[in-house]
């Protein structure tokens, strides 16, 4: 389960929902334009965006945990990844469901496009579609040829 953090340093995960919006004490069925704009900004903030419960270091739901794990295993580049904790912001938590027209969390966006929730992430990972998508969107950690050249000749097999 800690595999992810070998590849993705936690400092590179952004959490929190910026900008923070003032709470409006009215019960609204449809999300306001401001919330929608804020969510759109979040979606556009990185190539890969995950709306989740908890943080990548401390997921607070098994589905969010599984999703983070999969993204880590796929070799997602932390520079191109942002996570938003919906538990920190009630407006985001409710708003994102309507924004994506998707009833559950986590929710994955790649290049601004809604990909799906945990079930879809898992089945795409299994079928290889996720790797393909991330590769094509240039979201994976780049190969590091310089590491190769650092290896001493006697260490090579």
């Amino acid at each position: 389960m800690f595999k992810l953090f070998n590849r993705i340093p936690k400092s590179s995960f952004r959490s929190g929902f910026q900008p923070r919006l003032t709470y409006q004490p009215v019960s609204i069925r449809f999300i306001s334009t401001e919330i929608k704009d804020a969510i759109q900004k979040a979606v556009d903030s990185s190539k890969i965006v995950l709306f989740m419960k908890g943080t990548p270091e401390f997921p607070q739901c098994g589905f969010s945990r599984a999703s983070i794990q999969i993204l880590g295993q796929q070799g997602v580049d932390p520079e191109k990844f942002a996570a938003y904790n919906v538990l920190e912001d009630q407006e985001l938590r409710e708003g994102i469901k309507e924004f994506s027209n998707w009833p559950t969390i986590p929710q994955l966006y790649v290049d601004g496009e809604f990909i799906g929730g945990c079930d879809i992430i898992m089945s795409m990972a299994k079928s290889g579609e996720l790797a393909e998508l991330l590769e094509n969107s240039d979201c994976l950690v780049p190969e590091e040829p310089e590491l190769e050249s650092n290896v001493q000749p006697q260490e090579r097999n």
């Binding site: 027209n101 998707w102 009833p103 559950t104 809604f114 799906g116 079930d119 879809i120 089945s123 795409m124």
Partner: peptide, 18 residues
Amino acid sequence: NKLMRHRLVNNALKDEIA
């Protein structure tokens, strides 16, 4: 595709999933 299927199910079971 998967996303469309899930959406179909999510819509059909909207009140239940909520």
